[in-house]
Computed example of a mutant assay.
Amino acid sequence: MATLNTRAIEGSGTSEAEWLGWPELAHLPEITVSALVPDDRRAVVVAPHPDDEVLSVGGMLALLGRLQRTPLLIAVTDGTASHAGSVEWPPERLAVERPLESEAAWHALGFPGLQAMRLGLPDGGLHALQHRLTDRLITVLRPHDVVFTTWRLDGHPDHEATGQACAIAAQEVGARLVEVPVWAWHWAHPGDARLPWARAQRLMLDAQAQQRKQAAVQAFRSQLHGDASTGAGPILRDTTVARAARPFELVFA
């Protein structure tokens, strides 16, 4: 198993041109939204931070919305630690703004008025609270749910703790787990043996779903601009935003 040090989230990361230039990516098997989430299943999206649900499966959510199927969104944290030491974006402001950004994003995806189940766990502290998160998820999930969350080896501690908790809870209740790489696209490279390509499938997105996902990403204003009070750049790097324009989403099923 790779260690966190080999999956560091640093710099600009692997460019989208590099990923899309890898021929094998286009040859991965395809899956439809109906096959991924059959009509008798509930889609449950568990997001470590506001924006993870959109970056991972925003296109899928747009497709489900068109089918008039409402998912359950679980917000594990409110993302209040995204701007360390910031005067412009202190935790108190982020606690208000980031959930509002999420709601605007869901509206863009076709879910006006949708409310998430907010667990209120500390941003940056999920590793220590993984058992607590697991126990909470076990009370919420149902047999035959399809649970979407961040990959257990995604490189971000909160993403990995959330993925682990979802895996345990899904197994406990009889739900199906679908993991989605988010930060892995940043630190990995085409053909990287650390990613489970044998489990990878591509959910193809039509033009409308792509447009809705891109619009949803733009709702996260706090994450898209630099911080004048600290000199830090945007939390969501250009490479991350570029990936939102893909005509597919990749899942590990």
Rank of each mutant, 00 (worst) to 15 (best):
A2P: 15
T3L: 14
L4D: 09
S12R: 15
W22E: 07
W22S: 10
P23K: 01
H27Q: 15
P29I: 10
P29D: 04
E30V: 10
V33Y: 09
S34Q: 14
A35T: 12
A35F: 04
L36I: 07
P38Y: 08
P38N: 07
V45S: 02
L55Q: 06
S56A: 15
G58L: 01
G58P: 01
G59I: 04
L67Y: 07
Q68C: 11
I74P: 03
A75R: 02
V76G: 02
V76W: 04
V76T: 00
S82Y: 00
W89Q: 08
P91I: 02
L100E: 12
S102P: 03
E103I: 11
A104D: 01
W106E: 06
A108Y: 04
P112T: 09
M117N: 11
M117V: 15
L119M: 15
L121W: 01
G125S: 15
Q130M: 12
Q130I: 10
Q130A: 12
H131S: 10
H131W: 01
L133K: 01
L133A: 08
T134S: 06
R136Y: 06
I138E: 15
I138S: 10
L141S: 04
H144E: 14
H144T: 12
V147T: 01
F148D: 09
D154G: 07
G155V: 01
H156F: 09
P157Q: 11
E160R: 13
Q164C: 10
C166I: 08
A170K: 03
V173C: 10
A175M: 05
L177H: 04
L177N: 06
V178W: 00
V178Y: 02
V182K: 06
W183A: 05
W183G: 04
A184E: 09
W185V: 02
W185Q: 00
H189M: 13
H189W: 15
A193N: 14
A198V: 07
R199I: 03
L203P: 05
Q218E: 15
R221D: 12
H225V: 11
G226S: 11
S229M: 06
G233V: 09
G233L: 10
I235G: 05
T239D: 10
V241D: 02
A244G: 06
R246L: 04
E249W: 04
V251P: 00
F252R: 03
F252T: 03
F252G: 03
A253F: 02
